[in-house]
Nucleic acid binder design. Sequence first.
DNA 1: CGTACGTCCAATGTATACATAATTGCCACA
DNA 2: TGTGGCAATTATGTATACATTGGACGTACG
Lengths: 230, 230
Amino acid sequence: MRASQRVYNQLRAEILDGDLPPGRVLAEVEQSQRFGISRTPVREAIGRLAAEGLAEQQGGRGVVVSDVTTDDITPLFEVREALDIQAARLAALRGDPAEFAALADRLEDVAGRFDSPRHSSQDDPPAAYYELVEQMDRAIDAAAANPWLDAASSTVRMQLARVRRLAAQDPSRLAAAAREHAQIARAVSTGSAQLAEAAVRLHLNNALNSALAKAPATAAGSTATREETP
Amino acid sequence: MRASQRVYNQLRAEILDGDLPPGRVLAEVEQSQRFGISRTPVREAIGRLAAEGLAEQQGGRGVVVSDVTTDDITPLFEVREALDIQAARLAALRGDPAEFAALADRLEDVAGRFDSPRHSSQDDPPAAYYELVEQMDRAIDAAAANPWLDAASSTVRMQLARVRRLAAQDPSRLAAAAREHAQIARAVSTGSAQLAEAAVRLHLNNALNSALAKAPATAAGSTATREETP
DNA sequence: CGTACGTCCAATGTATACATAATTGCCACA
DNA sequence: TGTGGCAATTATGTATACATTGGACGTACG
């Protein structure tokens, strides 16, 4: 693999894991010495990180890991809502109903197992749930069959992976989230774009509220929002 | 201005204008000689173009201007629909009603002037319309106040600017488009997210149909889409 | 004591030289 | 004549050296 690619992968992982915290400067010489290579591939890697929003220019000189705070949770969810809804709508129209019906079945099963006592050490509902969610995301993306939608989604998902570190998950929400995901899969399997949109909107609203409940209220400055008047 | 920035601006403009057609190889040495600089900043510029989707790796060797065909129109409009709807929804909730009411008034005025005979050489409805649309896009983005939404939108808009060259605009649609834009502005000014969404969805559907009507039907391979069953 | 200007330094931006890999063309052999 | 392999060439990937810029620190003056 090319050196620039290795450095990019490594720096990206460290930023997403929080090992390189927001505000940390990404000096070319420092990183090139750390990786034992020259500045050129490091420079390319940092450029890619900046293009994706994981890093940004520091006042015209120097690149730093970009800052993400709890203030970013709401705007990121707004974009995610737009993209996930469209993906679910397209999947409902284009996907294989049987595939999503099967996913819905398995998600409902996992959701039920959260409440029941465990039957064996093999039975790990959270792990099974995460696996299924990932599988459904891939299925929806594949069914939507839209490369640009994929690209936009992956950018937002990457940022959301960062903010997720700011507000640790509430274990008690996993069962509810699993049921919501099952509803999404079920809606997609029916072929109704409207139903799929409703299911996604519901799930993301709950997920956002859960995240904000744990996130400390930030200083004022929040954008004023008029109430909906339908 | 930095050399890499100049090269990036120039190459980007040439790609968007079609001077560098899809499939054209972007050789580092060739471009560095053309601009009279070294390979390093050229390499950086081409890297940025590739990151934005205007160019792409050619099998592992060489970077070429990415291909856009009429097949891309529908998927691009699907992403644009998702983003524009969300932007309009947020603008309806957060924007200044008076600002968008004023935009609606001016758009309705321009729409009317398309049909009436011109009163002077100064009266150029298309130019006025384009100016107003741009103004409204900026107003919606500003009201939505979501940097990530802006970033995603600008990427899609750039690609759409390329495909627009493939299917020249229908002058007779401008008047209808102006009325649709006026409806969007009016909907946003009422503060109703639902109404704004409906207006944007209507406009983009018409715009897409107009574009596809002029675009030649491509060879099979189009993704099958089940009909909506609400 | 505070501010403003100048010099120095360090990090980025650019150029060039070297290494490496892939494609293409040519030659030999079947 | 076609195919396969090898070599040469060319373009990219990486390293290093040089240029430039922006900031920081120190000093001098108000």
